[in-house]
Design a protein around this nucleic acid. Structure first.
Lengths: 221, 221
DNA sequence: ATATTGTATATTGGATCCAATTTTTCTATA
DNA sequence: TATAGAAAAATTGGATCCAATATACAATAT
């Protein structure tokens, strides 16, 4: 055995690339709700055939990001107020628990990373970046929970409402408030107070949810 | 307009049929963990081509029921003890909450249905049916919560561990105990005691989890 | 002018074909 | 006999082709 181990990561298939690109575009709101996703068009964008595109669309549907109708095609899925409300409630439940489980495992490096994202969030002026940094702040802490299945479900929920969360941050002046709440959560983590960090996380999510609800009710009538 | 409206439900595509059939076979344990799923073989079983099969496999992978490697194919995914443990913990969290939310909405018909499944569970002698009835008993109650997103996540978690749950019921003499716990949960529902029903549900799941853990640790060494 | 029906076009679903890669088998050699 | 390497077979990934269905549009009748 003379050779260093090589990282033989799985090469990505065409379907993987298309899936990831579409997923990103949808959760960032680059493609609007209701927009039609035509297979041939997407295939040409990626210089491939419709087969990998169809696989990607099928996966997106499983994750609730698009809806499809036989022979009619796929459209980006929107969420009703009730659905958004439910997902925020769900997130509050799970993420509070994940936070509680994470606190005892937090080490210096993780806390420093979280601090970095926390500061970056406050400093950021580009609205498009807020959602991204906010998400990284939370997941950095959550990962310490050592609960991959919980994490998967958190990511999946976030994918569904990320677009709306960004709207909340951008249009409802939610950023300063979110920044303060991040500080409080991080302080609880530093103190090792799992119960407090958990409750603050829950409130943080429910606050954002309520703020978004009133914004959407205003907007949609 | 002389004719009654007809329910023109979406006809299922070949991919849908293959997906559902494979999903059922996997969660019921008809296909063993590690078994290879060859596309051509499955295609012939369903009198179709490999294209719909590939779509079905792609969806199954998204749900964690199989793992695939490029150019190597798909195998039924097993769970480590740690993963099973985590999923039981996750279920306890979510299902307890769903139960709490359901109780205020339970009506006579739903309670009667649940009673039916509860009795059927106790009367059933075929081990293969226990898992199925157990699942129906719980979901019948959960549906009253009016939380489709929670429900989806519950179903997804159950899909992952259903095989192991059946093993627990069959091999660890868990049926009489589960039966008694069902009775207690149903009684709490009848009384309208959401808090009690929630706690009993949590304990019911954690009990089954612990029982399964010791069984698996014995078995796997 | 409007509604309705027939037709052309576009789009999706599925089958077949070819390319890329892995797995198996065979063979030569030590 | 065991083993390394090459050839063959099997398997998956992707492209192209055809069939099924939906949409757009024009022609017709009222």
């Amino acid at each position: 055995m003379k050779f260093a181990a090589v990282d033989v990561r799985q090469a990505a298939s065409a379907a993987d690339l298309v899936y990831e690109a579409l997923r990103k575009a949808i959760i960032e709101g680059k493609i609007a709700v209701g927009d039609n996703l035509r297979q041939e068009e997407i295939a040409q964008m990626f210089n491939t055939s419709r087969i990998p595109v169809r696989e990607a669309l099928s996966r997106l549907e499983q994750h609730g990001l698009i809806t499809t109708q036989r022979y009619k095609g796929a459209v980006v899925a929107g969420l009703s107020i009730e659905e958004i409300d439910e997902i925020f409630e769900f997130r509050a439940l799970i993420e509070a628990e994940v936070m509680r489980l994470a606190v005892p495992n937090l080490d210096r490096a993780t806390l420093d990373n979280a601090r970095g994202y926390c500061d970056a969030f406050d400093r950021e002026t580009d609205p498009h970046r807020w959602g991204e940094i906010n998400r990284q702040f939370h997941t950095t802490l959550y990962e310490a929970s050592g609960r991959p299945y919980y994490l998967q479900n958190v990511q999946s929920s976030l994918d569904r409402i990320d677009r709306y969360l960004r709207a909340q941050l951008t249009f409802t002046n939610g950023v300063p408030r979110a920044g303060r709440e991040h500080e409080a959560i991080l302080a609880a983590c530093e103190k090792g107070d799992a119960e407090l960090a958990s409750h603050l996380t829950r409130d943080h999510i429910l606050d954002a949810g309520r703020s978004l609800m009133t914004f959407l009710r205003d907007q949609r009538g």
